[in-house]
Design a binder for these strands. Structure first.
Lengths: 309, 309
DNA sequence: AGGTGCACATAGGCTGTCCCTATGCCTCTG
DNA sequence: CAGAGGCATAGGGACAGCCTATGTGCACCT
């Protein structure tokens, strides 16, 4: 289901934020490199789309109304995430030669790296980074071949030749749509979970390996093949929400859906689905320079209990 | 500082998400009500902006590349928040008569309500809601005058005539820019904090009242006037980050900035800055219908430890 | 009281983006 | 080998958004 067109253009909301900050439409326009009339009109059409007066215009500037404060606050959340997205995209471009090469598993790259990159930028603004994402085997290869300065993996055991440090905790959860039979029981046996085909990422992905590994540790040797192989976390979530079948995903991915009850978490009895996310580097070759900075930032996020939301 | 234009148009990212979900550009186009060539071109220009191939196009559909999965994942975060924003905006429009009238303080409306509204929509899709935001006095008035079916306040004491239930915890924090003298010490006495002019919301706001109330409880009777009155949380944050001066804000507001070290949290010795956020309704008139549903949803968010991010 | 400056609004004209229809090319399948 | 499904390309048209120039209202100062 597509996003309503009312919120697809972030420019106007960004402009509103600038007005809140600078106290006048003209100065906000200047900050965005546009003319004052353009900004004025944009804000006017934004108000029309929202259907409520957002600004109190006076001859000495502009202030937000109560509704304007709310919209600006909600928009700020979107804009923060958009800044993460932008930081991520920047790290994907491998055009210039960069000072810091990172290899990371998908879970780490998706949920933790953007914030780290933004923090890194405030420490050393001139560090250009390149990100190479793949499964844990890929990451290990890149780091060992010195094609990456620092790696991040989600596998339970550290590949030979690599030193590591835990930088975050993760937990896999089994989720189903609210209408699914398991949703009422909220608990299922390991054997039953293993025997049921799941919607999952393609084999070789860290999440899928961790799931199979955890089942094996619980004494389950045989498990059903996947119900459906999807190409991304997003697609898996959509399939699970649509009721195609149960899915196993990182808690990070589905926390919002569990809170909103679009997905229901089902406990898997006697299976430990916790796992550590680790930074890795070649043994005996301690990271230095930007890689060391990033490692510090990543480690810090584990100790800080100021969970970013 | 304006957001890079690379990420201001969410339509293309939403389209990418649909491709991941549906497995083909054509079907994604259909889901968005646009022609297949338009979608194809949008995705092509998106790839150009990102600078990396996102899709593997075959004659049997399209799949995301690894980079595409990452971008889709990051974009999903933005889109989730955009959905919150849209839900909030919808609740501000008072055009149609609605079944559920809510009055809420700014903190609650900004950080908790959108998610609740989305959850409510999945319970009873036809409930139209209207939100009226203001300080706790305003909320109490609205609820007592039966102009609102349910209210949410952030004040420590419940106004007379209202019954209440705690639905969330909040905590105020004192933050400064990293370059501020207090940033190194990370702790400051209550007297010193009170004697220093702060960047703050205008008087009458719940946050400012709570701060003054907490200082009084700690035995501080005299406090400095504000350094600067700003019109919105966003503006206060920007001023604090810019080094204008210390600010006191809800932990929700600044968690991301503390994690990214753009702001530094400073403990205030011997002052308790915790507070409860409460739902309120007229005594003896227990909420029913949609109001009861919303109350259930809001209460649930306190017990669930699946913190939405 | 009048003038001046500042900030936002309005008008008119232009550019560019985006979307649609029609069509072509490729590949897999029966 | 023919057909169907899926993506790419081409061309034309509509609309949104921006800029410059100018108008309007309010506050403050003399």
């Amino acid at each position: 289901m597509p996003l309503p067109s009312r919120v697809t253009d972030l420019t106007s909301f960004d402009l509103l934020r600038s007005v809140a900050e600078l106290g006048s439409i003209g100065r906000a326009a200047q900050a965005h490199g546009m003319s004052q009339p353009s900004a004025s009109e944009r804000l006017r059409t934004l108000e029309a789309r929202v259907g409520v007066t957002l600004l109190e215009r006076t001859s000495r500037g502009a202030r937000l109304t109560t509704a304007g404060q709310l919209v600006a606050g909600w928009a700020a959340q979107v804009l923060e995430r958009a800044a993460d997205l932008d930081a991520g995209i920047t790290s994907l471009r491998a055009d210039r030669q960069s000072h810091l090469r990172i290899a990371a598993s998908l879970t780490v790259a998706e949920y933790l790296l953007p914030a780290w990159l933004i923090a890194l930028r405030s420490v050393s603004p001139d560090t250009a980074t390149v990100l190479s994402a793949g499964n844990s085997v890929h990451v290990a290869e890149q780091v060992l071949a010195q094609k990456a300065d620092l790696g991040f993996i989600e596998s339970t055991d550290v590949p030979a030749g690599l030193a590591s440090r835990v930088v975050a905790k993760d937990e896999l959860v089994l989720v189903v749509a609210p209408g699914h039979p398991w949703a009422r029981r909220r608990r299922v046996s390991a054997a039953k979970a293993a025997a049921t085909p799941l919607v999952s990422r393609e084999s070789g992905s860290g999440t899928r390996q961790a799931w199979e590994h955890a089942l094996k540790a619980a004494g389950i040797t045989e498990s059903a093949g996947p119900l459906l192989d999807m190409s991304s976390t997003t697609a898996i979530k959509a399939a699970a929400i649509g009721g195609i079948g149960p899915a196993v995903l990182s808690i990070h991915t589905v926390a919002a859906d569990i809170a909103a009850r679009t997905l229901v978490r089902v406990e898997v009895a006697d299976v430990d689905l916790h796992r550590a996310l680790r930074a890795v580097w070649p043994s005996g070759r301690t990271p230095r320079g930007p890689a060391s900075d990033l490692l510090t930032i990543a480690t810090r996020s584990l100790t800080d209990r100021a969970d970013r939301r």
